[in-house]
Simulated scan of single mutants.
Amino acid sequence: MTITPDIIKAFTPAGSLRASINLGNPILAKQDPQSGEVGGVSVDLARAFARKLGVSLELVVFDTAAKSVEAVRSEKADIGFFAIDPLRGEGMRFTAPYVLIEGAYLVRQDSPLQDNAEVDRTGTRVVVGKGSAYDLYLTRELKSASIERAPSSPEVVPAFLAQNADVAAGVKQQLEGDARKLGGLRLLPGRFMVIQQAMGTPAPRGEAAAKALSAFVEECKASGFVAEALARHGIKGASVAPAA
């Protein structure tokens, strides 16, 4: 990947590289409750890309995917980390995915539901994080079940319990953690979708910038950087996406 002055300029109209970070997906980003420091796979990638450009990095942190997407789309951030979805394509250019993440369903231990295919039935209430990739996907795919939206993905299970809903939907690892912590809950076997997690930049930044970001992602996958970041942060259940 050749970094030209024009590419650097395209990514840094504010002087530094502003990276939109979504804390709603704990697989990719977390905030230390004591220090307030933000870290994770997406932060590692943002730092590596800033180094590649030879510029300083500014993290723009949000609690939901929807807010993170809007920051990039409105050019209040220069890059972001998103699940690829048709509804998010407007105004942005995505790279190929760098990580694949499973989406799963959580139910109460005594729920009659035993299989993912049983969820989409009349009367079934599914809670999902508002504006998340899971929300966008299930809004298209569920024909009979009803969707109820929690303010963010980390609030899905609390909302599911408080509203006495039938199913919680979201990041498999997050749901597994909630099930272990709270008890009386179980995941349905397998997954209902696979999230393709990619990097994105505002479309007006141009074709050369989009290609440079895509090349960076491919370099990070091929060199082992993404795999090492997943291991370093103790992320299980997510896998490095294949080469584009």
Rank of each mutant, 00 (worst) to 15 (best):
G54D: 01
E90P: 06
A244G: 09
A77D: 00
I147A: 06
K130F: 10
D85A: 13
P86H: 07
K236W: 00
T95P: 01
I21Q: 06
F62K: 00
Q114C: 13
A229E: 04
L161E: 15
P151A: 02
A209Y: 11
S239L: 09
Q197G: 04
I84W: 10
K52P: 05
S214F: 00
A19M: 11
G237Q: 08
F192P: 03
L87A: 09
T64V: 03
G190M: 04
F82Q: 01
Y98W: 13
A209G: 11
A104E: 01
G224S: 14
Q173T: 03
R93G: 01
A83D: 05
S42P: 09
G190Y: 05
D115E: 13
I27G: 02
V217K: 00
A46W: 02
F225D: 13
M92Y: 10
V60T: 02
L230N: 03
G103Q: 06
A66I: 05
E148N: 00
A198Q: 02
R149W: 05
G237K: 09
D6E: 08
V156E: 08
S16W: 11
A215K: 00
S16H: 11
V156D: 04
D166Y: 04
L23H: 12
A65E: 04
V167S: 10
R140W: 00
K130E: 15
A14Q: 14
P204W: 08
M1A: 12
V55G: 04
K67P: 12
G234C: 06
Y105P: 03
G177C: 06
D78I: 09
A65Y: 03
C220T: 14
A83Q: 08
A231G: 07
Y137G: 01
R51N: 14
L106Q: 03
L113D: 07
V171D: 05
G184P: 09
L17N: 11
L53F: 07
V171M: 08
R47A: 06
P97L: 03
A145L: 10
E37N: 07
A117F: 06
A243S: 07
S223R: 13
G15S: 12
V55F: 02
I8E: 04
S239T: 11
A159L: 07
D63K: 00
T201F: 04
E176Y: 08
R125E: 11
Q114Y: 12
L187G: 15
S152P: 04
K211N: 07
V60M: 12
G183H: 06
D85L: 13
A168T: 15
I79W: 01
S239P: 05
G183L: 05
Y98M: 06
N164R: 08
A133H: 05
L57H: 06
Q163G: 07
A29F: 15
R108Y: 10
D135T: 00
I7C: 00
K9W: 08
Q173N: 02
S68V: 14
A179V: 03
A212R: 02
R108E: 11
I84C: 09
T201D: 03
P154S: 15
T122E: 14
A133I: 00
V60E: 03
F62T: 01
C220F: 14
S56D: 13
G190C: 08
G129M: 05
G39M: 04
G15W: 15
E75S: 13
